[in-house]
Every structure is written in structure tokens, then in C-alpha cells.
Design a protein around this nucleic acid. Sequence first.
DNA 1: AACTCACGCAACCGCGGGACG
DNA 2: TCGTCCCGCGGTTGCGTGAGT
Length: 267
Amino acid sequence: MGRQPCCDKLGVKKGPWTAEEDKKLINFILTNGHCCWRALPKLAGLRRCGKSCRLRWTNYLRPDLKRGLLSHDEEQLVIDLHAHLGNKWSKIASRLPGRTDNEIKNHWNTHIKKKLLKMGIDPMTHQPLPQEPSNIGNSKTISSNPADAISVEPKTTNTKDVEISGTTTEEESSSTVTDQNSSMDSENHLIDNIYNDDELFSYLWSDETTKAEASWSDSNFGVGGTLYDNNISGADADFPIWSPERINDEKMFLDYCQDFGVHDFGF
DNA sequence: AACTCACGCAACCGCGGGACG
DNA sequence: TCGTCCCGCGGTTGCGTGAGT
């Protein structure tokens, strides 16, 4: 018996996606939605497994993704959420609109983990490392470089015991989004960092503007009737639903894009 | 210029869980 | 209740790239 493989290995392409494949995937999802990932590659004319398509879409092609490095505020939020949730990257990602679990996971492993270790904080427990007792404190900001400074709330509860509801708690609000000015700065910083392979994306989305508009105003659109019906992984819980009603004119759509930090998609 | 090494990120893999018949 | 299918998650891998020598 055993589990059926997600796709027959023969004839299924692996490895990096080409611009052509991206375009096919975008094209298909914009016109049909993603009714069934397993069937999608065949229908879209892709020699990929459905899983690979889903990953590519959710981690890279989704138009609501923010691009570029995580801002200081976002990083801080990730640390706070990780202290509460542990390695529940998808849950953490759901609190950061436009960010994917994969992106956050990578950022954690490559940047934040190191920063915390450097600061004498155990990245897993969020407690001071035993060999550096001088670091013990309730809340601290330690860094030789002010720009890198991260305040850390020592974790007092077991991650397994804490279940956070869909709404942002008071504690989180106060510990993460400290002031509007810093948010604005980070937003500007974000815009600066956002995504520099503009050419590729404007190519990928070049034909999609008109198609997308047609699709969004088309009752025939997708299974759920919306581009993001209810099945976008990660950030879906906190996201408003994209629907033809909401995005039936260009201005609204652009506003919408901006709300999610999509500043350059060739639209 | 050529080589090595370290780093960061995209993509893959395997498993768990929910939905459904 | 059980088996199957599919989706999504978390851990891991491997490749591209830039820095250092």
C-alpha cells in the first residue's frame, strides 16, 4: 500500500522555475483560479507537480507578496511571535501580510537566529544563554549597531500551551508596533528594498493586467469566484478577500495593491 | 584571473491532518 | 470506522552569488 506519490516522478520537471513556466502558472491562475493543485499543472500545460506549482505561487508569484528584506518592525514581530508560537511559520506568516512562511523561516534561520545568538539569547527558548548570565533581564535592546538593535521579551510560557486567537493581542500590539513613525520609516525602507527584478515581473505580468481585469469582472472566474477565494496558505486568515466586486476598477485595485505593499507589479 | 568558501534563498521532501466517500 | 485523496506545514537540501585570498 503506502502513500501515493503527489505526482508521478516520470516526466515531472524539478528545479528552478523558468519565466515561461511562471507566466503559464500566473496566466492559468488568473483566468481559472487554483481549483485543484493536483490537476492544475496538467490543465495549465506545465510539467510540474501540483505541489511545486502551489509552492511557486504562494512563495513567489502571488501578487500580494511584499518583496525585499523584512523591516525592523517585521523582524521584531517575528521574534515576538516566535516566542509565543515556536516554529509555527505559517501562523507567524499569517500575522505578517505579504510575507510567506518560507520567507520568514529563511529569514529566521539566516539572520534573526544569528542576531539572537550574538546577543546571548537562545533562539529556541528566547531565554538568555546560560553561559552569559550578564544578559539576563526582563527586556533588552542589545546591539553595537543601533540599526540592528532588537528588543527581546524573554519567553515565560511554554509555546505548546499558548494558543493565540486570530486577533492581535494587546500585549503583541504594545511590544511590536511601537510607534507610527517607525512604521512609516520601515515602510519607506521596505519600498526601497522592494524587489529589484522589476523587469522579470513586468514580463511575467505583462499580459495579465487585462486578463486579470477581465477575469475579476467575469462571473466565470475560478471555482470560488474570486482570485483568492479561501485557499491562500499562510496569510489568508487575516486577509480581506479579493473579489470581483472589490477590484472592478483599476484605481481600487492599485490602492489594494498598495495596501499589501505590492508597489511594482508592472500594472 | 582563478579559486575557495560562506551565505542566502528557492525549491524539494516527507509527514500530518482534514475532508470525503 | 476505515481508506483515500489532497493540501499545507516544517525541515532540509542544493544552487547561485558575492566576498575573500
